[in-house]
Design a protein around this nucleic acid. Structure first.
Lengths: 159, 159
DNA sequence: CATAAAGTTTAGCCGAGGTTACATTATCAT
DNA sequence: ATGATAATGTAACCTCGGCTAAACTTTATG
């Protein structure tokens, strides 16, 4: 009557290298979730760094505009980043990076550029490369980043 | 005394092609956030599809194990997916994909495999490719995916 | 056939990240 | 000097995706 009358007890799992495979997949999901969580703070410090370079200071109104988000969201997030000692600011004043924040920002900036360069070298348009990199950059392992760098260098030399 | 005594009014933005640049960046962030939001449902339907292929049915306890998450989280999520008509199930019974869910699952399966193949062709180890793909796959545009496919094909022919 | 074990659901908590509406502060211009 | 306006902050609310604890259903078994 109901669409399924399947048993509620577990079938014995296919017993090849199954356990390892399962574990690897669960790890992949967990890793991805962890990276998603770190994404916001990486984006914020990177953006603050950009703004300081471009106009000498970072202000929440500009951050909100660039992120495509309300200023309230920015306010809430930067409070959290301050608690984590990545940034520092006084009420109604501009935002600055702590040394810790600055080093994170620099790492992110480098990685971001590498991903963009890689995608471009692969033949992706500047526009798409910029958009995709924003999503991808937080999920590339050191190993993959290295392979990307190698490819970019070769491709440039070759052409 | 306070670390910053910078003005609270906006400086005129650097006026080159600034407006476009700003818009592009905000778009990149928005796109990335949108993809993050879609990530869960894509992962779930893909996983359900896998389980059905492997053992004929998808059950929440297995999903929880593969995702590395508690079974309660799975229960809550699948309720949402049912509301979105991606899956279908009765209480205490196995889970099935609706046509809509099935087509999403197939798209995701293809994309996932393509990203893994690409990373492998690039020289990344199987293990890292699997983990990174889980994060990356949700953020590749059609254009980038196409470039990846092209590269994978060439590289295979070449070697 | 009663009951234990496995699986599923419900209730309630939390933090992240988003919103609107409203309050406060700083700066600029008259 | 003060008043308008831009920027920032606060309050209250939402959804999503985690969690634990406890209740309930199904299935297997002694």
């Amino acid at each position: 009557m109901t669409p399924s009358r399947k048993p509620a007890r577990r079938k014995p799992a296919p017993s090849r290298s199954a356990a390892e495979q399962e574990a690897l997949r669960a790890t992949a999901f967990r890793t991805s979730r962890r990276h998603n969580a770190a994404e916001t703070e990486e984006d914020y410090v990177e953006l603050i760094d950009d703004l300081i370079r471009e106009r000498g200071e970072a202000r929440s109104v500009d951050m909100a505009q660039r992120l495509g988000v309300s200023h309230v969201t920015v306010a809430k997030t930067i409070r959290r980043l301050r608690d984590k000692e990545l940034i520092q600011y006084e009420p109604y004043r501009a935002i600055f990076l702590t040394p810790k924040g600055k080093s994170l920002a620099e790492r992110c900036r480098g990685r971001h550029q590498q991903v963009v360069d890689f995608l471009t070298a692969l033949g992706v348009s500047t526009r798409a490369a910029e958009v995709d990199a924003e999503g991808i950059e937080h999920h590339v392992s050191a190993e993959t980043l290295d392979a990307m760098r190698r490819f970019t260098r070769e491709r440039r030399k070759g052409s």
